[in-house]
């Protein structure tokens, strides 16, 4: 199959959705002639023009409000937060307005928009341009939270998100933008709320999100040579969460390691751990459920410090060895 980068896959999804449906448009800072800060929308302005690829002033609340207002009156906007960190300026609109509108109005409004956000560390962008804030939104009823980890998932999930009739927070990862993988040319969707068993294994279940999925895969290759077989599950959508494959896997392996980039305290890992322990998998656990996550700190600028602030392949390998050996 043809290979595309994660970024190209996202761009193709937007292009195909806009070709198919006049109601779809993209709005954000520098998404037009600049092509987006990371180049995700490069070339789309030439194809669709400034009425559908809309450059905005630096106004994050305005971008979110534009998506909400257009969505509730029949359009299907895609908004872009240039760095996911900037979403804090749009929190009121997303959390108080977009997320709650349908419910407050007695289920009589539809607010179908996708907010794309570029998240994650590893680019030397330091504390205000590197955060992983996805779990803030998992806590908000009315929103869905999607987090693709591969080019294939990026395209299929973005197309599904655009078709969905709810507000969706779509967390992309800056380090993944240039990674390549097979992506079909035709339009396809991956259901929102479907976990993916990325690798099968018998010894330990790793639940990983976004960039941590490929790191877990790399760790799994190393561990396989030691005779330890990881089963890796990518929830792909944090909300709604497809719990079943996770629970079934833990029943099989008896051990669970949760890996994400966001800081540990209050992160999605706590939710996943609770899901496992509240399920029938509890009785099958032969070790505590462990979380490997970002340190409880802002992302540092220094390259080496930044590297050590979030989980890396070697950390996953080490944690797995400990768990398998019963050292916890």
């Amino acid at each position: 199959m043809r290979e595309l980068s994660y970024m190209e896959a996202l761009r193709e999804a937007m292009r195909q959705a806009m070709q198919k449906d006049d109601r779809v448009f993209l709005i954000g800072e520098d998404v037009g002639v600049y092509g987006g800060a990371f180049g995700v929308s490069a070339g789309l302005l030439d194809e669709f023009g400034p009425k559908r690829i809309i450059d905005t002033p630096i106004s994050e609340a305005g971008i979110a409000g534009a998506c909400i207002g257009a969505a509730v009156t029949g359009m299907r906007p895609i908004g872009e937060m240039q760095f996911s960190d900037f979403v804090v300026i749009a929190m009121e609109q997303l959390v108080m307005q977009g997320a709650k509108m349908r419910f407050m109005f007695g289920g009589k409004a539809e607010v179908p928009f996708v907010m794309r956000l570029a998240g994650g560390s590893g680019t030397g962008a330091a504390a205000q341009h590197s955060e992983s804030l996805e779990n803030w939104f998992v806590h908000v009823p009315g929103l869905k939270v999607v987090m693709p980890s591969s080019p294939y998932d990026a395209k299929g999930l973005l197309l599904a998100a655009i078709e969905d009739n709810n507000p969706i927070m779509f967390f992309e990862n800056k380090v993944l933008y240039k990674t390549k993988g097979p992506v079909p040319e035709e339009m396809y969707t991956i259901p929102i709320g479907q976990s993916h068993v990325v690798r099968e294994g018998k010894d330990l279940t790793v639940v990983a999100t976004s960039v941590m999925v490929s790191r877990a895969q790399e760790a799994a290759e190393q561990l396989s040579q030691e005779g330890i077989e990881l089963e890796i599950i990518d929830p792909r959508t944090l909300k709604p969460l497809d719990e079943k494959p996770i629970v079934e896997s833990v029943i099989k392996t008896g051990k669970a390691l949760i890996v994400h980039e966001a800081v540990k305290t209050g992160g999605f890992g706590g939710e996943l751990a609770a899901v496992i322990m509240e399920s029938e998998a509890f009785g099958y656990l032969d070790a505590p459920v462990k979380r490997l996550a970002g340190l409880d700190m802002p992302i540092p600028y220094n390259r080496n410090l930044e590297y050590h602030a979030v989980p890396q392949v070697e950390n996953i390998v080490e944690e797995t060895r400990k768990l398998v050996k019963g050292q916890y």
């Binding site: 009425k51 409000g65 257009a70 029949g74 359009m75 609109q93």
Partner: peptide, 14 residues
């Protein structure tokens, strides 16, 4: 107030 931007855009696009 920000929502009115979206409603306005939607009117313009339609």
């Amino acid at each position: 107030l920000p929502i009115s931007v979206g409603v306005g855009l939607s009117i313009q696009m339609r």
